[in-house]
Computed example of a mutant assay.
Amino acid sequence: MTQRTEPVRVVAAGDHFVLPGLIAGAVEAELGGIAVQTKELTLGWPLEPFGPVSEVTEASDAEDELIEALDGAEVLVTQMGPVTERVLDAADRLKLVVVCRGGPVNVNLDAAKAHDVRVCFAPGRNAAATAEFTVGMLLAALRRIPQAHDLLAAQGKWESGAAYYTYEHSGLELEDLPVGLVGYGAVGSRVARVLCAFGAQVMVYDPYVRGEIHGLRVHSLDHLLARSRVITLHARLTSETRGLIGARELGLLPEGSVVVNVARGPLIDESALCDALESGRLSAAALDTYELEPLPADSRLHALADRVVLTPHLGGASRAVAEKAARIAAEEVGRWARGERLAHCLT
């Protein structure tokens, strides 16, 4: 590679989670002896919701701000920046976009390719956080922790909590409990290891994974469901997995089972899930993701507070995730600046 005579010009378009300063610091540390000029831009997420922007999805509505910041820049590192055709048309020196997420849904990949802009992403950044959150949600649902907290902390009712100590209403424990995992990727494999340590009877269904796993491999989803008192979902959302768990699948679970989803909301038919909870066929569910987000005010799930644990898509919300995302992105910038092969590149 020819020695650069000019600094690498980088825009760190962070937000209130992946801070611009985290990105800038990681890039500067990664480039080492290579000169770099970094411009920081703070986008509104999560204090301002993301959404569709022009032809891309899950982005901050900040095309104008991004265009101004990218004047003369070669590299953009961002989480929610809207890399639309309009932005790419304006950023005539841009050569590399690195998205601090598991996938570049905020980038128009066709337009990037047409502009000869490489696009990278940050896989695995939130695997540990999401796995830990999944286990926490599972324990909360099994032992009815949020409901008991609400009785005492919000309502001041010590005696009312006694109902959870009756045999009929007391919770389940993980030791010896049959738990089925749908998906065994970066998150599912971590959850399996933790549940095995608890002494759960872990079973895994994932037709795409080969090699050894923690737990018992099950070769059909129906078989997994029929044997599991708890299922946790760890599959990607694709045309194949959308609606993977519907009324028929929920009907295969033993009565009183628990469903946990910290993956993607549309993996489950939410209406069928509510039916199963209302009828008592399921004893509980723990959900961090939903068919529609934000969760609508008229969702049937709100009326099931005694049987559900609901959180607003927080599975990946840890400081370590933000730091990992910045570091993974900076490593790609370093590879590009040194003329090395990019590790997680789509264009």
Results as ranks from 00 to 15, higher is better:
Ser271Ala: 15
Ser271His: 14
Ser271Trp: 13
Leu273Cys: 05
Leu273His: 09
Cys274Glu: 14
Cys274Thr: 09
Cys274Trp: 09
Cys274Lys: 12
Cys274Asn: 03
Cys274Ser: 04
Asp275Glu: 15
Asp275Val: 08
Asp275Asn: 06
Asp275Met: 06
Ala276Lys: 06
Ala276Thr: 05
Leu277Gly: 10
Leu277Ser: 04
Leu277Pro: 02
Leu277Ala: 14
Leu277Ile: 05
Glu278Ile: 10
Glu278Ser: 03
Ser279Val: 05
Ser279His: 08
Ser279Gly: 10
Ser279Asp: 11
Ser279Leu: 10
Ser279Glu: 14
Gly280Cys: 09
Gly280His: 03
Arg281Cys: 07
Arg281Asp: 11
Arg281Ser: 15
Leu282Phe: 04
Leu282Ile: 05
Ser283Met: 07
Ser283Leu: 05
Ser283His: 10
Ser283Trp: 08
Ala284Lys: 08
Ala285Lys: 01
Ala285Cys: 13
Ala285Gly: 09
Ala286Cys: 13
Ala286Ile: 12
Ala286Glu: 06
Leu287Trp: 13
Leu287Ile: 05
Leu287Glu: 07
Asp288Phe: 15
Asp288Gly: 09
Asp288Cys: 12
Thr289Asp: 10
Thr289Ile: 15
Thr289Lys: 01
Tyr290Ile: 00
Tyr290Gly: 07
Tyr290Gln: 06
Glu291Gly: 13
Leu292Arg: 15
Leu292Phe: 15
Leu292Val: 15
Leu292Trp: 14
Glu293Trp: 11
Glu293Val: 02
Glu293Met: 12
Pro294Tyr: 13
Pro294Glu: 09
Pro294Phe: 12
Leu295Pro: 13
Leu295Asp: 01
Leu295Arg: 04
Leu295Tyr: 06
Leu295Trp: 07
Pro296Ser: 07
Pro296Tyr: 10
Ala297Ser: 15
Ala297Ile: 13
Asp298Asn: 10
Asp298Met: 02
Asp298His: 10
Ser299Val: 01
Ser299Arg: 07
Ser299Thr: 04
Ser299Asp: 12
Arg300Ile: 00
Arg300Leu: 03
Arg300Gln: 10
Leu301Phe: 08
Leu301Thr: 00
His302Phe: 14
His302Val: 04
Ala303Met: 05
Ala303Cys: 08
Ala303Arg: 14
Ala303Pro: 12
Leu304Arg: 04
Leu304His: 09
Leu304Gly: 02
Ala305Val: 09
Ala305Glu: 06
Asp306Ala: 11
Asp306Gln: 12
Asp306His: 12
Asp306Met: 02
Arg307Met: 02
Arg307Val: 00
Arg307Pro: 01
Val308Glu: 02
Val308Arg: 01
Val308Lys: 00
Val308Ser: 02
Val309Ser: 01
Val309Gly: 01
Val309Cys: 09
Val309Ile: 08
Val309Phe: 01
Val309Trp: 00
